[in-house]
Amino acid sequence: MIELQNVTKRYPGNREALSHLNLTIEQGEMAFLTGPSGAGKSTLLKLIAAIEKPTRGQIFINRKNITRIPNRKIPALRRHMGVVFQDHHLLHDRNVFDNVSLPLQIAGFAQVDINRRVRAALDKVDLLDKESMMPITLSGGEQQRVGIARAVVHKPAILLADEPTGNLDPELSAEIMQLFSDFNQVGVTVLIASHDLDLIMRLQKRIIRLRDGQCIDSQSIQSAQEYEVIN
């Protein structure tokens, strides 16, 4: 599903943010990216979403080589993905419903399907009663959930999230991780960058650890003890 072959990324005037990275994430898999600040987690997600292009190496999504994807083909690639950010990036001139429906509008769905899908996505994040509110009037956690609803409303095959629980309290963070886990349950490939080791270990999924742009460890961890043994 997602495959990186010997990928190096160097930003202009910087050292390598990622160097000679090899990584495969299978279809339907859920994995966490972790590692110290500056390890290259965000960079990796940006390469997958074609926000940045690799300096060297090859990237495949669904066996399609997107390494040198031309700009005009990027929209179609991104419609197969859902992206969640730390700062939820909602549009503040329209209400929750219109924010969430944006990916469906872009793809040209019929209004009935849009209504149905948006309500389903809002129901999933438990915000059905807030559909006509403006984002600015929602709490941080609610805004984050609107962002997640927008990322999944078009049933993407891949869900990418960069620090989705970055500034939420532990309880809310756990809820949101559970949401991602639910999406994974129905077959979505999920890749989440997160610092929150306690939280991600509880979910017992694959953890990919980056340091200085290299993958220092990548395996499925069944329990906290096991994690400690590895370290």
Binding site: A49, I51, R72, I74, P75, A76, L77, R78, R79, M81, V83, H89, L91, D93, L102, P103, I106, A107, R150
Partner: peptide
């Protein structure tokens, strides 16, 4: 910002 987000969601330039 809004344009960047919309692009990230897969909007074409024309949209």
């Amino acid at each position: 910002d809004e344009i960047e987000v919309t692009k990230l969601i897969g909007a074409t330039d024309r949209f």
